[in-house]
Amino acid sequence: MEAEVKDQLVSIEKPELIAPPNWEPVIMGILCNWCSYAGSDLTGTSRIQYPPNIRIIRVPCSSRVDPWFLIKSLQTTADGVLVSGCHPGDCHYISGNYFARRRFLVTKKLLNFVGFHENRIQFSWVSAAEGPKFAKVVNKVTEDIKKLGPLHLYKKENFEKK
């Protein structure tokens, strides 16, 4: 365990020491279908370039996102997560993002409390018209997580990669 604490310490302060050469972070992006997924599609159709580290999962609404998904992502494959939904007031399902917002804040603070850097769990509101904003968000999240280095916490019994 001590070695791992050291990993954490090093990875926060000097990622290049712990990160293997050519290490690229994996970011799990969970996007709501109606705003953020459509916004990310618009980023594509507008050919706005962003780092290739994000892996996108489509859900109907940000309120579908169980905190379990974030915990599981961080425990298994991801070095960071991004959840994105409709702007407040724009939810396709009227109020889903308001319920989600409360859960996100508590989940983020709790994960931070038990030792995950707050930048590993990020949230955004991206509308279907905000293609450039989506690229900006992914840029920021990717940069943040590259600075933090690979995530080792609770990954000891990781899944064998296929």
Partner: peptide, 16 residues
Amino acid sequence: GAFYKYSLKDPDDFIM
């Protein structure tokens, strides 16, 4: 309990 309701005034600054 807090997760089964919401307020329009809930903090939003932690979301990009």
